[in-house]
C-alpha cells in the first residue's frame, strides 16, 4: 500500500508544481515507484515541467469517468523509469471532480505505487478540498513572505478540518518546504527567516530550497532542476527526497549569505 502526499500552498505561484515535479523525480531515483497526479484541472502545468506536454492523450478525468483505463492514461517520465504522470484535464474544470470518483482513483493508485503525489491547485476552493480529502500527509510549500505564510496557515487549517484522516481522528502529518530563499535578503532582514516561519506555522520542516536562476530554464525545457548536479536548489530537493524515503539527512544552511571572499576573487582572476 502506497502513501499519499498532497502538495499544497494556499497561495499560487510559490512553486508547488515545481516542487511536485522535483520530488517525484527524486523519489523515483531512490528506487521507489511514484505517480504524480495533477489536480489543477483546467490549468494543466505539471506535464510541461516534466517535459511531457505532447504525450498527454488521456487525463485523470477520463480515468475517473472510465472513458480510459489507468494504464492508458499513465505517462512514463523521460527521466526515470519509476515515475509516472497522470495529467489534469485541460478542457474540464474543477466541477468535474466528484468525491467518490476521486476516492476510487486514489485507492487504485495506492495499490500500484509506493508514493502517490497530488499537486493541488492554488487557493482553497473545491479542487483543493478534493486533493487533500484522501491524503495521508501534506507537504506545504511556502515562500519567505507574509502573504504566502498566511495563505498556507489557512490551508493547513482546512486540512485539519476537512481531510478524511483528520475526521477519523488520525494525525495528518504536515511537512514544510520553504522555497525561494534568497540568502542575501534573509541576512539583510528583508525576507522572513525560516525559524520565524516555523514558529508561525508550527509544522515539521522538510527542507529549504534556495532561490535558483536555473529553475525558470529547467521549467521551460522540461528538465526539473533536480537533474542538474551543480544546482543548489537541485541538491536541496535531493535532500528532501531522501528524507521522504526515511533517510536522516541533516539540514544544510542555505540562508547564510557568503559574499565572495578576496581569495575567491583573486582565484577567479587566474581562471
Amino acid at each position: 500500500m502506497g502513501i499519499v502526499y498532497a502538495i499544497i500552498s494556499g497561495k499560487g505561484g510559490v512553486g508547488k508544481t515545481t516542487t511536485t515535479a522535483n520530488i517525484g523525480i527524486g523519489i523515483a531515483q531512490e528506487g521507489k515507484k511514484v505517480v504524480l497526479v495533477d489536480f489543477d484541472l483546467g490549468q494543466r502545468n505539471l506535464d510541461l515541467i516534466l517535459g511531457l506536454e505532447n504525450r498527454v492523450i488521456y487525463d485523470m478525468v477520463h480515468v475517473m469517468d472510465e472513458e480510459a483505463g489507468l494504464k492508458q492514461a499513465l505517462i512514463k517520465s523521460k527521466h526515470t523509469d519509476n515515475l509516472f504522470l497522470l495529467a489534469a484535464s485541460q478542457t474540464k474544470d474543477k466541477s468535474a471532480l466528484v468525491q467518490e470518483k476521486v476516492k476510487k482513483l486514489i485507492e487504485t493508485l495506492k495499490e500500484e505505487f509506493d508514493y502517490v503525489i497530488l499537486d493541488a491547485p492554488a487557493g482553497i476552493e473545491s479542487g483543493f478540498e478534493h486533493t487533500i480529502m484522501y491524503a495521508d500527509a501534506t507537504i506545504v510549500v511556502v515562500n519567505p513572505e507574509v502573504s504566502s505564510i498566511r495563505d498556507a496557515d489557512k490551508a493547513i487549517g482546512i486540512v485539519d478540518a476537512k481531510c478524511e484522516r483528520a475526521k477519523e481522528n488520525k494525525k495528518v502529518q504536515k511537512y514544510l518546504v520553504i522555497n525561494r530563499i534568497n540568502p542575501a535578503m534573509v541576512s539583510s532582514g528583508e525576507m522572513l527567516a525560516s525559524a520565524d516561519i516555523l514558529d508561525i506555522l508550527s509544522i515539521d520542516l522538510l527542507g529549504k530550497i534556495p532561490e535558483d536562476k536555473g529553475i525558470v530554464e529547467a521549467s521551460n525545457t522540461g528538465k526539473p532542476i533536480i537533474l542538474n548536479e551543480k544546482s543548489g536548489a537541485g541538491a536541496a530537493y535531493k535532500r528532501i527526497c531522501k528524507r521522504l524515503c526515511g533517510e536522516n539527512v541533516a539540514f544544510e544552511d542555505v540562508e547564510t549569505f557568503n559574499s565572495p571572499s578576496i581569495m575567491g576573487k583573486i582565484k577567479g582572476l587566474f581562471q
Binding site: 505564510i149 498566511r150 495563505d151 496557515d153 493547513i156 487549517g157 508561525i200 508550527s202
Partner: peptide
C-alpha cells in the same frame, strides 16, 4: 491548539489559549 488564519472563535466564558494566534 494553534489558532490559524481564517478561524473565528467566539467564547462566552473565560478563555485560555496555550498556543499562538496567527495573522488572519
Amino acid at each position: 491548539e494553534i489558532v490559524r488564519s481564517g478561524q473565528d472563535i467566539k467564547v462566552a466564558s473565560d478563555l485560555l489559549i496555550l498556543n499562538r494566534v496567527n495573522s488572519g
